Amino acid sequence: MQIEVLHIDECPNWEAAGDRVKEALAQLGKTATVEFRLLSTPEEAARVPFAGSPTITADGEDLFPSDGGTPDLACRIYFTPDGVAGLPTVEQLSQAIGHHER
């Protein structure tokens, strides 16, 4: 499995998203490549499943699919048990990664 964190330069959450992905993988006992891709233009964002920064994909699929992607270079929000946040929880990532593998 290849996991990619799609992000914009202004996003304050992209590094923490990568850390949480790695923590979720460790909890699951899984190994995977985690890469980071900086999106600098709307054209780059339109070519990938980008739904705001950070978008976390596994094998090219958004782990948290929404109504659609956006070419807008903007931050993304996630709905967590504690309310709206700039990135998913480790538990949400574990569930999403586990679901992706099925």
Rank of each mutant, 00 (worst) to 15 (best):
E43L: 11
L38Q: 11
L39T: 13
D72Y: 05
G83S: 04
L28F: 02
A46P: 07
P65T: 00
V84W: 13
D67A: 15
D72Q: 11
P54Q: 03
D59W: 06
S40H: 02
G68L: 15
L73M: 12
A58Q: 03
T41G: 06
T70M: 06
F79Y: 01
E44A: 14
L73Y: 11
G68W: 05
A45G: 14
I77K: 06
L38C: 00
G83Y: 01
F36Q: 07
F50R: 08
A58P: 06
I56S: 09
R76Y: 10
I77W: 06
F50T: 10
E35D: 13
P42R: 13
Q27E: 14
A51M: 05
D67Y: 10
L28M: 13
E35R: 08
A74D: 04
I77L: 07
T31W: 08
D72W: 04
R37K: 15
A74W: 03
D62V: 13
P42N: 14
P81C: 03
G69N: 09
G52H: 13
L63T: 01
L38I: 03
V48A: 14
Y78T: 06
Y78W: 06
A74L: 09
P65R: 15
I77N: 14
F64M: 11
Y78R: 03
K30G: 01
I77F: 15
G68V: 06
E61R: 15
R47M: 12
F64I: 10
D59S: 06
V34Q: 00
F64Y: 05
F79M: 00
A32G: 12
G29Q: 02
D72V: 09
D59A: 12
F64T: 03
P54F: 10
L38E: 13
T70E: 04
D72C: 07
V84C: 10
Q27T: 00
P54V: 12
T57S: 02
D72H: 02
G52W: 05
A74C: 11
T70A: 03
V34S: 05
P71W: 03
V34G: 03
V48H: 05
C75R: 14
G60K: 04
D59I: 00
D59N: 14
G69C: 05
T57H: 08
D82T: 12
F36S: 11
S40Q: 14
D72S: 07
E35S: 15
F50E: 14
D62Y: 02
A46S: 13
G68T: 10
D62H: 09
G52I: 04
T80H: 01
S40C: 10
